[in-house]
Design a protein around this nucleic acid. Structure first.
Lengths: 223, 223
DNA sequence: TTTCAACTGACAGGTTTATGTCAGTTGAAG
DNA sequence: CTTCAACTGACATAAACCTGTCAGTTGAAA
């Protein structure tokens, strides 16, 4: 984890909003300049808003601390996802909070609670490998909802690229990867795809209806 | 990432709820039995409910698909965290959903929306390394809220173990690590601690009040 | 057009991590 | 008490990853 530590340190150094030369950072962290350049690559790829200018140095584009985030009804989808992730946390409070949700949904959010929750803000940055494949999730989610067929370019683990037309049925999160369960028209059977291995998603004009044998409820992973 | 792929494959194999011998899994994935035993360790440590019985084989304790999760007002804290994480996603829909929250909080959640959101469920498993340090978050959060001093046993990156009494002020998430910003009584200054490097948190009976110079609003990372 | 510092590619050495092999032990069931 | 297969520890090798060095190129500003 030594490298992770250094990436974190670099963010802390840049956080002051001032200009920093790679050389100086390298000296301070006792690594070579080349390593700093590589680290900067990683940070940029991870979404940290740092900008390097030739002949000048590095500086963060915007202040790294974000305003407090709060929540809304219309984003219940996003919330559901968030809760699934939070339930993953080892923190027992958060875990049980996320797990005891089902029966209280239609209640009102008292504004008073909101003020309390402002006690902390989050400065959140995506880190590249965690985000792999997430770009496909929006069209997939939309297609599940609208019952729209999809065309997938899917790269199997052995490297083979396959093309399929599918009926998207269900997404699941497995802690490391997301999967898409679908009825595959080509193979005439249910298939589970890893979303991070999908190369391209193309929504097709064709819609699908519930047909016996092709519904999610017909899918039995035991068989 | 080859190993990650295999861990995922193992989960898929076990998912059928049937009995599997390490030997068979090893053959199928073309690795040695010993490697499978090591993988099983990792999966168990990551919270996958798999059980091995000597002389028998491996089987998952419960079905891996969970019922749909929904949300509640009382867990606004958990939600806030969840949204922070969701905002991290590259998925533009989810991102904007999470980002456009602030002004709609006091609204009601119409039950109608809820039904729609049931379109997907999540099977969520913690994976060990992501969870490091999360165990401390509950007491820290509680202490921030109740303005209670904390005693920290903190291991610096160089390995040194230090003991400090602090006023916990603020938690932040940096994509890789959580930090705790606090006023350190020992050093009489603001310090930022990485939560994953905290060895132990002990809430002290002593409370603290806002004192000029020791409040979060007095903390200026630029200085 | 010179200087500065960001940036890139290639290669080599070192460290860390993953895996296989081997030689055991353990607990349950027959 | 024998069998089965989960499990453990130790060690060696192989693969992956990280880092430094070197020899460049590029873009902006003075």
């Amino acid at each position: 984890m030594r490298r992770t530590d250094r990436l974190f340190d670099i963010i802390q150094i840049l956080r002051d909003g001032k200009l920093h030369r790679a050389q100086d950072i390298a000296d301070r962290l006792e690594v070579s300049v080349r390593t700093i350049y590589r680290d900067m690559d990683t940070l940029v790829a991870s979404g940290v808003p740092v900008e390097g200018e030739r002949g000048v140095g590095y500086m963060v584009r915007e202040q790294i601390t974000l305003p407090p985030l709060n929540l809304t009804p219309a984003e219940l989808e996003a919330l559901n996802l968030g809760m699934a992730i939070v339930a993953e946390a080892a923190d027992p409070d958060l875990k049980s909070a996320a797990e005891s949700l089902a029966d209280k949904i239609d209640a009102v959010l008292p504004t008073q609670v909101v003020a309390e929750a402002e006690a902390w803000k989050f400065a959140v940055y995506p880190f590249a490998d965690a985000a792999r494949g997430l770009a496909h999730m929006a069209p997939i989610r939309a297609a599940i909802k609208s019952r729209q067929k999809l065309h997938l370019a899917y790269r199997r683990i052995d490297g083979t690229l396959t093309n399929r037309t599918i009926r998207p049925l269900h997404m699941e999160y497995w802690g490391r990867v997301w999967t898409l369960t679908a009825w595959c028209e080509l193979r005439a059977g249910f298939r589970v795809f890893r979303i991070d291995l999908i190369e391209a998603v193309t929504p097709l004009p064709e819609l699908f209806t519930d047909e016996p044998g092709k519904r999610l409820s017909d899918y039995d992973p035991h068989s």
